[in-house]
């Protein structure tokens, strides 16, 4: 491991991408640094150039833009908490943020950093994946947008190509009656999730579910969506969703999960919790949309 690196401070997104392109694999983007500092100290990651994104403007905005919710990659977990009141979906994301680390680390840790670290148990991945979020990526050849589920390609692996950076998370179609909820089990507040599940529901004007998302964390190398549970929810009334359908959705979640036994939990426990947490997430969405959230 090198015992030092060179510090670079770009002031525009273009400059950041140019720096990354010219130094290639020897350069590392540095967002909040809360994961990066520990990985660098432990020798898990090694680089010669640190490209600090702290001073690139306009990367930290959280805003509604028409029917899109736009979250800048450099917005912090604390920003997400403070923007809870903006929209029903930021309410759910703010609640998720408050489950993560501590206040004084949330003020540093960024949403983009959390996603680019691509931990299977990352707390923001399931709710964002359930909402159908997209990742906006800027690279030397311009910009592209991909579904967040395709952004993750494995444990600590992302779809970012050489010189590319994640600039923004966009949740499309957030107008109307929507709700989301993220639930997890973890040993303590600052611990990472053993299993997690998120649900997203959108109603049409007649009160039927027109769009649904169910996503699981920490049960596979990447976040996974439970398509069968989603198909089951679509077309249901809230009452149907709460009575019986949530239970079946939980069974589909178990089938999708690829739970394993490790030092932190057994396969059996993870399997049971996958269903329980999925039902809880759907139940919470229903309660929110019924006005009892």
């Amino acid at each position: 491991m090198a015992n030092n690196f060179e510090y670079l401070r770009p002031t525009t997104m273009g400059e950041a991408v140019d720096m990354k392109s010219s130094h290639g694999a020897r350069a590392q983007f540095w967002a909040g640094g809360t994961d990066m500092m520990l990985q660098w100290k432990a020798g898990i990651t090694d680089f010669d150039y640190c490209i600090d994104l702290t001073y690139v403007p306009d990367l930290d905005q959280i805003a509604l833009d028409g029917d899109q919710l736009r979250i800048g990659a450099m917005a912090t977990l604390d920003d997400l908490d403070l923007q809870s009141g903006l929209h029903p979906l930021t309410e759910a994301l703010g609640e998720t943020a408050r489950m993560m680390c501590t206040k004084q680390t949330r003020t540093l840790a960024t949403i983009g950093g959390n996603l680019c670290n691509a931990s299977p148990s990352a707390d923001l991945s399931p709710p964002l994946a359930a909402m159908g979020a997209q990742a906006r990526i800027l690279g030397p050849d311009g910009e592209r947008t991909i579904p967040l589920t395709e952004f993750f390609t494995g444990v600590r692996k992302t779809a970012l190509a050489d010189g590319e950076m994640l600039t923004e998370i966009v949740v499309p179609d957030v107008g109307g009656d929507v709700a989301a909820s993220y639930n997890r089990v973890a040993r303590t507040v600052v611990d990472i999730a053993l299993v997690s599940s998120a649900a997203f529901i959108k109603l049409d004007s007649s009160g039927k579910i027109t769009k649904a998302g169910v996503a699981l964390g920490a049960v596979a190398p990447t976040v996974v969506r439970v398509n069968k549970a989603e198909d089951l929810l679509i077309g249901c009334s809230l009452k149907e969703a709460a009575n019986g359908v949530a239970n079946k959705a939980g069974e589909h979640a178990i089938a999708t999960a690829n739970a394993i036994t490790d030092i932190r939990a057994s396969k059996e426990y993870r399997t049971d919790m996958t269903s329980v947490l999925t039902q809880r997430a759907i139940g919470r969405c229903v309660a929110i949309l019924e006005g009892n959230g």
């Binding site: 510090y7 401070r9 640094g33 809360t34 680390c101 680390t105 540093l108």
Partner: peptide, 24 residues
């Protein structure tokens, strides 16, 4: 970044100074 001992205020916000680069 788990124990909070190194907490300082940066622009009024509490931050764990052990996880931040000095140059940041």
């Amino acid at each position: 970044g788990e124990c909070g001992s190194c907490t300082v205020l940066v622009d009024g916000k509490p931050e764990t100074s052990c996880l931040k680069l000095g140059r940041q």
